[in-house]
Design a protein around this nucleic acid. Structure first.
Lengths: 329, 329
DNA sequence: CTGAAAGCGCTAACAA
DNA sequence: TTGTTAGCGCTTTCAG
């Protein structure tokens, strides 16, 4: 592989000039420019990114930490982030943390020593203290769905509570008079907020009773089991709001097995807006702008890396009701 | 951040000794060892991977190129690969190629200059010639689901044809007497093989006719549309084999909308074995050992990087019939 | 068993 | 506008 030295020699200039040409900073005469361009072409020269990183302290690489890429929410996010990274010339390192704090710490260490320029973290378990190493090293962080901002940490979230309200309102408007709720893990802030939104709307109604809320774990099978239980306790329920789409899908499955028609007998709505087009009936949901979240995360990270200032440290994105067959038939 | 020099100074030895200690090669006296260990601990020193890469030519990073992480097959693969990479101390760079040869080429260039130690490629479109840059640079490649091996390229595939046969046999054994087939893109080898397997079993039967084969594109909506068409042409079909699970899910949806009961009226089987637990009825499938494929890809890659010899360049993995509700109720 | 020193390929003062 | 040169932090001969 050709090096900058080879180029400089053949072009009859110094490596500094080539470097300046490469990085488009400093002065380079037209002639030198032409000569260098020609040699680069001939040698098919490409700068060695590693050497560049060592000298220049930038790797053009970012880390992406997600709980588990198997959860369909995260591929959508990853795709958006990777697309955006690509346009900026960045490469993405994928890390699955399983919400395991130890694993998270290990990955943070690894990314730190691989000198990534920034990190995007989506995690339910991460704590402010866990980021101290990054802070000290001055590595910017964008947090998704988790809020504890500081100067080099910005948080991106969605209107979870409002989403919960929207879901409840939607079902009420459609005539539901006994709505059950499948709630996600209480340890997750956004999950609690969604439930809070639901409660804010339904607590005032005459049909509401706490036993209409079933606790689950954000998985399909969890939603399925919880739906069975709710159905047993409240055979007359006519609406279900699940705090995420996977649990909603599980609920749909349980309802189908119980012989309930959706949406005729029971209307179902989820939360997230992941692509679950294989479901029949198709799932109504409170959609997050997932792609936009991912893209913005990358945009913000790049801005942070470039030491731009005036970046909002807390950005809250709107959610939108997407009515499909599971509520409106 | 502490450097190897800081450590050497405080431990009263040379950087070479520290390096030897770090890499566990060459001799280091017990005393030196102890002293170094202590200082490393005190300084919380971690070697700089970038510098290490520049000097040592190894980055402990591998590239993973997939068509689109949004397709649920690939997160499963990615997860397996990342898990395995993690145990080897490697980090994974994720690249979505969209089966776009130009994008593929660009990523190969990028990974080449980021000095990844190896690359795992899952692609329908890649051609032997596209790998010449990697070959020249001596970067090992593991190909998934695509065969054109050489010394530094190994291919991992599954028994696609056998899978097609298994699917057809399964439906026949269950009493189906008019089986339709939703075929994937003909440009994809593994897709053609699956169809070939189906044809090998069904061509000899009295009910078989070419119009029972519908051509589609490996997506849910594609499977949905093709199923509708097949249903229109052959209202009396009683079995469906789709060449992948996404199309099978689309078929399930079309059948449900057409009022056909699965598996009572029509039995459905897919191919891949991706986790589609949200479906009701649950989907029978010809399962690939996806996790094992991913793990093996990484194992083989590491072996290749370590210049191990005697690695089989073509490994074919078995598929297994997983009978669920969509065929056996 | 250990250390000095020469790089790895590139960037960034600084001097010219 | 250009070239010289000193690193970046680590590995690896090669001579003790």
């Amino acid at each position: 592989m050709a090096t900058i030295k080879d180029v400089s020699k053949l072009a009859g200039v110094s490596v500094a000039t080539v470097s300046r040409y490469l990085n488009k900073n400093g002065y380079v005469s037209k002639e030198a420019e032409l000569a260098i361009a020609e040699v680069i072409e001939k040698l098919n020269y490409r700068p060695n990114t590693i050497a560049r990183s060592l000298a220049g302290k930038k790797t053009a690489t970012v880390g992406l930490m997600v709980p588990d890429i198997l959860n369909p929410f995260f591929p959508e996010l990853a795709r958006a982030i990777e697309d955006a990274a690509n346009t900026y010339g960045y490469t993405v390192m994928l890390c699955n943390t399983d919400n395991d704090p130890a694993k998270e710490q290990r990955y943070i260490e690894t990314l730190l020593h691989k000198q990534v320029d920034g990190i995007i973290i989506s995690s339910y378990t991460i704590q402010p203290g866990h980021l101290s190493g990054l802070q000290k090293a001055g590595i910017p962080v964008v947090l998704l769905d988790n809020v504890f901002s500081s100067d080099s940490v910005v948080s991106l979230t969605v209107e979870n509570k409002r989403g919960g309200e929207l879901a409840a309102e939607h079902l009420l408007e459609l005539g539901c008079r006994k709505i059950a709720h499948i709630c996600g893990p209480l340890s997750i802030t956004s999950s609690r907020d969604r439930t809070a939104g639901f409660e804010a709307v339904s607590a005032g109604t005459d049909w509401f009773t706490p036993s209409l809320i079933g606790y689950s774990d954000f998985t399909v099978s969890g939603g399925y089991r919880t739906m069975k239980k709710l159905l047993a306790d409240h055979p007359d329920l006519d609406g279900v709001f699940a705090s995420n789409d996977l649990m909603a899908a599980g609920a749909l499955k349980a309802l189908s097995e119980a012989g309930r028609c959706v949406p005729e007998d029971v209307k179902v709505i989820g939360f997230d807006g992941i692509g679950l087009e294989m479901l029949s009936p198709e799932l109504s949901t409170i959609a997050q702008p997932i792609y936009e979240l991912g893209k913005t995360a990358m945009d913000v990270l790049v801005a942070l890396i470039g030491k731009e200032t005036g970046i909002e440290t807390d950005q809250v994105f709107p959610v939108t009701l997407t009515a499909k067959q599971s509520t409106v038939g």
